[in-house]
Amino acid sequence: MFAEVINSPLQPSEYYSQLKGGLPAGKSGAIVTFTGLVRDFNEAGHIDGISLEHYPGMTENAMLSLLTTAAQRFSLVSAGIVHRVGEVSNFEEIVWVGCAATHRKAAFDAAGYIMDMLKQSVPLWKKEIAEGKATWVAPKASDDNAAMKWLGEDTSPLHVVKGER
């Protein structure tokens, strides 16, 4: 498994090769990848790009912890996350997630889980730039609900953690 934060353009085909190349022989029948792009709009209209801040060390560790949880929950063979930070232009890749499993359903489900939980549990902060002004993005209720959907299921190891907070 791998978790990386980088401040240069993402290379999704390289990460796919890295994930596939690291798989043990004979166990995997499915790889699902997700690539997130920067939209050129928000609720208020057009934006010119974004910038992202992270917490060096904790961000990488939180992503690895998320991968470990997802691997246990969905019986993944392997998985990876690569997240961009710094200035990112519209339509550029911001995040890549790859999940390898024996069957496709686990790989699809795990990719959705990782993205939903990443938006809730990994220290990254987004600023949108429009008309020369940068504005911090507020957390979205829809993202909260997406994460809560997973947390509400009894099999989630994060259910306990959430109760402690």
């Binding site: 990254l124 902060w125 987004k126």
Partner: peptide, 26 residues
């Protein structure tokens, strides 16, 4: 020490502490 904790969490001198707003990555 890079784990999100509650108000009641004990603190020692060599701990790595941080504070930040809710996250918005992805």
């Amino acid at each position: 020490n890079q784990q999100v904790v509650a108000d009641s969490h004990p603190v020692n001198a060599d701990d790595e502490l941080a504070m930040f707003p809710p996250v918005t990555g992805g």
